[in-house]
Structure formats: C-alpha cells, structure tokens
Design a protein around this nucleic acid. Structure first.
Lengths: 80, 80
DNA sequence: GGACTGGTTTGATATCTGTCAAGATAGGTC
DNA sequence: GACCTATCTTGACAGATATCAAACCAGTCC
C-alpha cells in the first residue's frame, strides 16, 4: 500500500478520491497532464493495493476509497 | 514519505525503529540479509524523507523515528 | 447494427531504484 | 601515529516502473 501511494500521481489520485467519497475517471483524468492509459494504469495499481474499488455505471466508471485499508496504514508505525 | 516507506526493507526498518524508540545500525544490519552499504542507503532515504533522524555516539550511530512525520501520514487520506 | 465516447489493456522505451563491491571517513585502542 | 571496527559514499549494473501510442472492450445513441 505504501508503495502504491509512493508515486505522487497516485497519492494525489487517492487524495482526490478521498475528498469526494466517489469519483468518476472522467473527473480524474483532466487533473493530470497524462494519457488516459497511464491514468488507468495508476488506478489499477491503487486498486490492486486494496486502497480503492470501482464500479461501472453505464458509460462511466466510479472509484472510491476503501476505508479499512486507509485505517491500517497508520497502525504500522505507531510506537505503541 | 510514502515513497520512502514503499520499499519493504525500509518499511520494516521504520517499524523496527518505531518499536524501540532508538536503534543502532549494528542492530538493524543483521536483520536484513543485505550489505551494510545498502542498509546505509536505505536509512539515508528514510532520513531524507524526514521519517527518522540520527546521531553518532562514539563508534555507533543511533536512529529514531520523527513522530511528527508519522502523524502527518494518516491525515492526507482521512475523508474528513 | 454502425459510429461515437469513456476506459482498459498491451508493447515498447526511457528512466528510476535497489543492490553489491570497493573505497573513504570517523572514532577508539594500542 | 598505526590499526581496527562501524558506518557512509561512490560507481556500476540488473530489474522495476512510469509513460505513451495504439489496439481493444463496453455502453449509448442514431
């Protein structure tokens, strides 16, 4: 998961998705001067890491954050 | 910071350091079937990321976690 | 069904990164 | 000062990764 968030593009993607509870790919793509193939690749990486999930609704595909995965991140480094 | 923790070796290093409040390089090295040069390189990466800090005390060098940096990690992805 | 739009997958390529070996530095001991 | 140990730095190289272009798949609308 840390590795997935290690790329600045993916970190911003995750942050964007976290901020809106649900986000269409068509809203993510224009934010990143990158080809749609690359966007899709990064989203797949985040999904493979278990950080996000997605669903197709008609023409569009929506992504959202997996809350459990995010919660697990902090625990790894807490001193207690 | 996420990038620094993206490598499994560095994540384990950070976890080891977090667990003991302060750790000597000579305690870290034997835990990872890697050359001392590589260990040093990873520690430098973590230090450059602001996750840990170090101090030389006589012959040995001690590393510890930067608590503020760790606290900042979770905030980035929390929905609120 | 054909064309158009939104997303994904694949293939190729340039860059980045982890690793080691070897040389360099710092402190301690004699 | 010479030597030894612990750590860091440098140079080189193999494997991973980000990116694009192009081909491909899924829905929608005419």
């Amino acid at each position: 998961m840390f590795k997935a968030l290690g790329d600045p593009v993916r970190l911003q993607m995750a942050s964007m998705i976290a901020a809106k509870a649900e986000l269409c790919v068509c809203e993510i793509t224009p934010a990143f001067d990158l080809s749609s193939g690359t966007i899709s690749h990064h989203l797949k990486t985040l999904r493979t890491a278990g950080l996000i999930d997605c669903e197709r609704r008609g023409t569009y595909v929506y992504y959202w954050l997996q809350p459990d995965a995010v919660a697990a991140l902090g625990a790894l480094l807490s001193p207690g």
